[in-house]
Amino acid sequence: MKMGNVIFSIIWLLVLIFVSFWIAGIAAGFYIIILPFTVCIEALSGLTDFLLSVVQFPKYCAQAMVDGKGFD
Rank of each mutant, 00 (worst) to 15 (best):
S9C: 06
I10N: 06
L16M: 09
I34F: 06
A24H: 07
D49L: 09
W22P: 02
I17T: 11
S20A: 15
M1Y: 11
K2S: 14
K59R: 08
I7Y: 13
F21Q: 13
D72Y: 11
Q63E: 14
G46N: 07
I7R: 12
L16N: 11
W22A: 13
K69C: 12
L52D: 02
G29K: 09
I41R: 01
F57W: 14
V39E: 11
L13Y: 07
S45R: 10
V15D: 04
F18R: 00
G70T: 05
S53D: 05
I11D: 03
P36S: 01
L44V: 00
V15L: 14
Q56A: 15
G68R: 06
G70I: 12
A28L: 15
I17W: 10
V6T: 13
A24T: 02
F8C: 09
S9L: 07
S53Q: 11
S9E: 02
A62N: 12
F57H: 04
M3F: 12
K59P: 00
L44D: 02
M65H: 05
M1T: 08
L47E: 00
G25S: 05
I41E: 04
G25P: 01
A62D: 04
V66M: 12
I32V: 13
G68T: 04
F8V: 01
F50I: 10
V66W: 14
G29S: 08
S53T: 14
K69Y: 13
F18C: 10
